[in-house]
Amino acid sequence: MTKEKFEILGNYIKDLSSETPDIETFLYVRDRISKYQLDIDISSKAIKNKMIEINTKFKFEEKEKVKKKSYFEIIYSTIVKINEQVKDKKELEKIILCDVQTEIYPKLEEALLNVLKVSGYPNIKFEKKVNFEELYSQRMN
Results as ranks from 00 to 15, higher is better:
K94V: 04
N131S: 08
I95S: 05
V66G: 15
I33D: 04
E24G: 06
I54L: 06
K48C: 02
N83L: 03
V100L: 00
L16C: 14
K35Y: 01
A111V: 10
D41R: 08
A46M: 07
P106D: 01
Y28Q: 01
D99R: 02
K59N: 13
S34E: 00
E62I: 04
D22C: 12
E24T: 07
L113F: 15
I54M: 01
K125S: 15
E62H: 07
Q138E: 11
N11I: 03
V86D: 00
K87P: 11
F126L: 05
V130E: 04
K57H: 09
E7D: 08
K59F: 10
S119P: 07
S18K: 03
L38I: 11
K107H: 15
L112T: 06
K65S: 15
R30T: 05
M1V: 03
V100C: 02
K90M: 09
E53A: 15
S70G: 15
M51I: 07
V80E: 01
S18L: 02
Q37D: 12
I75G: 08
N83M: 03
F6M: 06
V80W: 02
K81S: 12
L92S: 06
E7C: 11
S18R: 01
K89S: 12
Y136N: 02
E134W: 06
E4S: 14
T20G: 01
E109P: 00
D31K: 11
Q37I: 05
K129A: 07
L16G: 12
Y105T: 03
I75Q: 11
I79N: 07
S119C: 09
I40W: 07
I40Y: 09
E103V: 14
E53I: 12
E134S: 11
I95M: 07
E103A: 13
Q101S: 11
L116S: 05
Y105A: 03
Y136F: 13
E127R: 02
T25K: 05
V66A: 12
E133W: 10
E4D: 13
T78P: 08
F60W: 08
K89A: 09
K63M: 08
N131W: 05
N55L: 12
T2K: 08
K50E: 04
I8Y: 10
V66L: 12
N49S: 11
D22V: 15
I33W: 06
F132G: 01
K129L: 08
K89V: 13
I54T: 00
E109C: 04
S137W: 00
S70Y: 05
I40M: 11
G10S: 13
I104A: 01
I42Y: 02
D88S: 13
L116D: 03
K107E: 14
F60P: 11
T2P: 00
S77I: 04
L108P: 04
P106E: 01
K68E: 00
Y121V: 13
I54K: 02
S18G: 06
K59Y: 12
V80R: 03
V130K: 07
P21M: 09
L92R: 04
I52T: 10
S17Y: 05
S119M: 07
G10W: 10
Y76G: 05
V118C: 11
K90D: 09
D39S: 13
T20C: 14
I104Y: 05
N55K: 06
Y105P: 03
I74T: 04
